[in-house]
């Protein structure tokens, strides 16, 4: 069992490494992609400067906290899209029968399918996240916490995409649900939760867990709270398990490329 996990880990890393090598074939494109993503994220600071010129406190956040919120949002997104890029194209992989080659390998199908390419620009997001952390205030404790939340949040984002994409095993047009779910997560991630009220507030800590990925970490890094910390861990583990469970349940219905649409 332990050996199997070790081997799986080894092959996943190897797969990511090779995918990275592929991206680096064109050095200039590789570097510009990263730099432009950092600039892209940075350009949104303009928006917040304007907003904070109207009010000192938006949704309970200071300007500095919004920067940290952006940092967490960028680094979780970057982590997830770098290591698990194909989790965001999984619907297409399922619908077009591209799981075949992973199914004949003696490894975890889901992991093989989502780790076989990396997103270059996500490195820019990841770096941007840490730049924001430095602006917010660097300390060893913050660095460790930030990294920890980046990994948890990255896993949550990936799991959500996997769960929604797995619906493709049952429904044909589920890619719209996937897109909506993913863009909800990324759009909500960069706005303070204090601006939301009522049912939306409940949703962001449950069905659309932007709260768990982004808001709780900002809160913990401002003032440590062990209960919230445990909630993040438990939520992450639950969602990862759910992703594997639903994907493997759906896999039994996998129809390779044999599912064609017949015209009459």
């Amino acid at each position: 069992m332990l050996m199997e996990v070790k081997n799986q880990f080894k092959i996943t890393l190897l797969s990511v490494k090779y995918a990275l090598v592929r991206e680096m074939l064109n050095k200039t494109t590789f570097i510009t992609n990263i730099l432009f993503m950092i600039l892209n994220n940075a350009s949104f600071i303009i928006q917040w400067i304007v907003l904070y010129s109207l009010k000192d406190n938006i949704g309970g956040y200071t300007f500095n906290q919004v920067l940290l919120l952006w940092g967490i949002a960028a680094s979780t997104y970057g982590f997830s899209h770098f290591f698990f890029k194909n989790a965001y194209y999984l619907s297409d992989t399922i619908n077009n029968g591209k799981l075949d080659s992973f199914l004949v390998q003696p490894k975890n199908v889901l992991l093989s399918a989502i780790t076989n390419s990396v997103e270059t620009s996500a490195i820019g997001d990841f770096i941007y996240g840490y730049i924001m952390l430095f602006i917010f205030g660097f300390s060893i404790k913050n660095f460790i916490l930030f990294t920890f939340f980046t990994i948890c949040g990255g896993f949550i984002l990936t799991s959500i995409s996997v769960i929604l994409s797995s619906l493709s095993f049952w429904f044909n047009k589920s890619d719209i649900i996937v897109d909506t779910g993913n863009s909800l997560m990324t759009s909500l991630a960069t706005y303070p939760d204090g601006i939301f009220k009522g049912i939306v507030k409940i949703l962001i800590y449950t069905l659309i867990p932007a709260g768990i990925v982004n808001y709780i970490p900002v809160e913990i890094m401002t003032e440590f709270n062990i209960n919230l910390f445990l909630i993040v861990i438990i939520f992450t583990i639950t969602l990862i398990s759910l992703a594997f469970l639903i994907f493997y349940k759906g896999l039994k219905r996998y129809s390779s490329s044999n599912l064609m649409v017949a015209r009459i």
């Binding site: 080894k10 092959i11 190897l14 090779y18 592929r22 080659s101 003696p106």
Partner: peptide
Amino acid sequence: KEQLWTHLTPYDNFKFFGAIY
């Protein structure tokens, strides 16, 4: 359907498959 990584040499590909198994 191709299983090989096209940017790698056959040698590296064989080693990758070795690791898979």
